[in-house]
Simulated scan of single mutants.
Amino acid sequence: MRLIRSLPLLLLMLGLSPGLLAQGNQLNLTSLNWPPYSAESLPGQGSITSRIRQALANYDLDLAVRFLPWNRAVKQATEDPHYLGYYPEYLSPNSDCLYSKALGTSSLGLAYHSDQALHWETLEDLSPYRIGVVSGYHQTPAFDQQVAAGLLQVEEGVNDQINLLKLLYRRVDLVVVDREVMRHWQNQLPSLRRARDQLQFHPRLLGELSLHVCFNNTQAGRAARDKLDRQL
């Protein structure tokens, strides 16, 4: 019987990647506090985190997540070899990500003041408004293209809850936000809960966007992506 002398080859035959073994049979990812999808304080650390962890459990692999503000989460995952990726991320045409299969869906739309009528059909209709976005977030490709062309006025904030507060106090006219994220903060943040009737989520969506893990474009990242995908 011929012995398998190559450890990487043996690991691949067993369905494990050298990168994952180097992490101690533990997949290290970064994320942000973006409830209900991902948050350190939520049961299971959020719905998307729970789904990733459940998929990895089929390989007896653990998931370890470091929660950081979004821009730091992306930077940490892409520059620190201890991590193989970050989540949740929308698909982006210009990204270097190795995207996992979809882990969920985000209903992305606009929050506005209840006493301010908002009627829009195309993105061009939004040009008169100051629109709050979170620094580093992708929106829809069409929205991002309009921003890059200088056709939409955006003001960046550090997170969704700050943007919703800016909307409440009329520092911006609209806020781009996921519907469930807005609902969470209106339930959990006292100042938004007290003013629940003052802010509305517009029924016309910017888009229904799938949510993914963005794995690093490396051999270990590809192996981890493929392993996760087989259980989704």
Rank of each mutant, 00 (worst) to 15 (best):
A22C: 00
D62K: 10
I52S: 09
D115C: 09
V134F: 00
D226I: 00
Q231P: 10
R179G: 13
L118S: 03
R204S: 14
E89D: 15
N163D: 12
H184Q: 12
V147D: 00
W120V: 08
F201W: 09
L118P: 07
I48P: 07
P43S: 04
E124R: 00
A142I: 03
A223S: 14
I4F: 14
D178E: 15
A55H: 09
D60H: 14
V154K: 04
S127I: 02
L192P: 06
E79P: 00
R230H: 09
Q161C: 03
N187W: 00
M1G: 12
R179L: 14
K75R: 15
F67D: 00
D197Y: 06
H212F: 04
D125M: 02
I162Y: 05
H82M: 13
D80R: 07
Q76H: 03
L206D: 02
C97R: 09
R222M: 12
K227I: 13
L20S: 03
Q231I: 05
E121F: 09
D197R: 11
M13E: 15
L167F: 05
P81V: 07
L123M: 01
D197Q: 15
I48Q: 02
V134Q: 07
V147E: 04
R5T: 12
E89N: 10
R66T: 15
Y169W: 14
N159P: 01
S210G: 05
V133S: 02
N71S: 14
L192M: 12
C214H: 07
P203F: 01
G221S: 05
Q200F: 06
D229Y: 00
H212T: 04
S127N: 09
F143N: 01
N187H: 08
E89L: 13
A142R: 13
R179N: 14
A223M: 07
A220W: 08
N25E: 04
G150Y: 04
H212Y: 08
G19E: 05
D226V: 04
L167R: 01
R2Y: 11
R225S: 08
W120I: 06
G24E: 04
I162N: 09
S17E: 12
T122P: 03
A64I: 03
L205I: 10
L21I: 08
R72T: 06
L63C: 06
